[in-house]
Design a protein around this nucleic acid. Sequence first.
RNA 1: CGGGGUGUGGCGCAGUCUGGCAGCGCGCUUGCUUUGGGAGCAAGAUGCCGGAGGUUCAAAUCCUCUCACCCCGACCA
Length: 572
Amino acid sequence: MRWSQTYIPTLREKQSEAELVSHQLLLRGGYIRKLSSGIYLYLPLMQRVIHKFSNIVREEMNRAGALEITMSVLCPAEIWQESGRYNTVGKEQMRLTDRHNHEMVLCGTHEETVTTLIRGEIKSYRQLPLNLYQIQVKFRDEIRPRFGLMRGREFIMKDAYSFDATEESFKESYQKMVDAYFRIFNRAGLDVVKVESDTGAMGGKAAHEFMFLVDTNAGEETILICQKCGYSANVEKAIFRDLEKPAAENELKEMETVDTPNASSIEEVTAFLKVDSRKLVKTLLYIADDKPIAALVRGDREVNEIKLKNSINAIELRMATPEEIEQHTGAPVGFSGPVGLKNIPIITDSLIMDLKNFVVGANAFEKHLVNVNMKRDFQPTKVVDITLAEADDGCPHCGNKLIAQKGIEVGNTFMLGTKYSEALGAKFLDDQGEEHPIIMGSYGIGITRTPQAALEKYYDEKGIIWPKNIAPYLVELIPISMDNSNQVETADKIYKMLIEANIDVLYDDRHERAGVKFNDADLVGIPIRITIGDKSLKQGKIEIKARCEKEFSLVDVDNTLEAVKQLTKKIK
RNA sequence: CGGGGUGUGGCGCAGUCUGGCAGCGCGCUUGCUUUGGGAGCAAGAUGCCGGAGGUUCAAAUCCUCUCACCCCGACCA
């Protein structure tokens, strides 16, 4: 492609709307433009990147035996009502009515649609297993779109759905997808880690996320990794072994009320009472589906709200306001405690089981209770793990210390079980003639998000450095001067040579000064640059350089193709 | 939804406090010169100052309402 024939509106100056480097680079490099909050237009270069990446995805999905289909973005609301998700997805689902006043939704995911398709088609175990996928637009009316393509309201996703008759068969299907995912991200030049994750609104039994590890603040998720045994999980999900157990005590002391003037925070109370924060129990009031609950965690720990939410099967969970705290406990913030709480479920973290003679708020202003003991002084409604795991906690499997890393979720896999097949009636007959719901899995990859995520890592102060397999073009051809017939003839010749070899070339044929072309080339980030200038052309040579390297090499004009092939092999 | 902020030419911004010809840099157009890392000179074009209403002789500027966008939080396939 000739630069003069395509549309690459690069921008010299920083764009104020973009915070992240990757977002900034896509705007400045002429890859995307914003139409409205969270809605982006893909310009020619971005379109090519999307094609490159989705082709990798398509090839690997096909190789894994999945079948490509396309399902409509628009979908009748009934099937979402049938699955029960209509009431739980929340406001991010775009809803509208058609001219017949029929309720419709724009899909953010397609479990309902694909299950509806399948229930009409699959009747026998002989038709299973089956895996259907599509690469298509999704809509989600995000509360707060941000970070460009990373969290948009409209985006492209590859979503696959597996259908199996037995658990064993499902495990194979799931593993095939996991293997395909590693191949896909590998080919795209991204190192990813697979982590355990919460199932969230998808429901189902278990889930994994594929995380691209980054150092920047774009890492929207924290993951915990054990470098010894390989355990890895999203913090939302991570469990751990407590390496900080306080000293054991046998004797149960008598509970007492003590004054704690000006001491409401954990730090203040521990300092005032001169006790270890691990001997304090924090009582936090939440409102779960409009009802108050108390969550108890050890003083040195934080609540994992996802674990808490899951432990009580709540749909909505939020912290209580200071007014609500006062209303339910009779004391201001900072003095809540489980003793004497009436009609409020007390969800107690399992770490507290090990504690004796601990300190809690007394539900009275500037007062705490010391030497409190579970069962004797209050009854926990439920004892369950609700503590947020942190770096340096012990790995749940081997006890080694966990390390924390930031990651961007680029793919996910869900073990859905029979949640959707039961709700929507997708059943088959087994070889005994018995009817069963189909076992399902669902597998997503962010097609537009992934390339941007890659840019959080692959860039320098000059611009983008695309991994070769998702770059819009492999080679950028730059004649220094378009007024020099020698250079132009050589460039034309090389352009033709590369095209015939099926290599994607961007030929910068603009009548611009060299500096402009070089700067644009660095910004746009094509992996290989070929420069044709008088200096080297005098010796019958051109200059070839990888975007990721500083040095260029001189190559005979006739050897250009070979040099491109060699360099391609060398780079990521 | 709560908190904070910004809307002025295609992009980045000044001007708003203290009302008085709508500006700067980049980009764009034309011409001449230049030509290996974002050229120089000259001449141009481009504004409903986000929108509506109000105050005033006079509003980008003051007041009221409204819309959009950005940041922090809640949310997240």
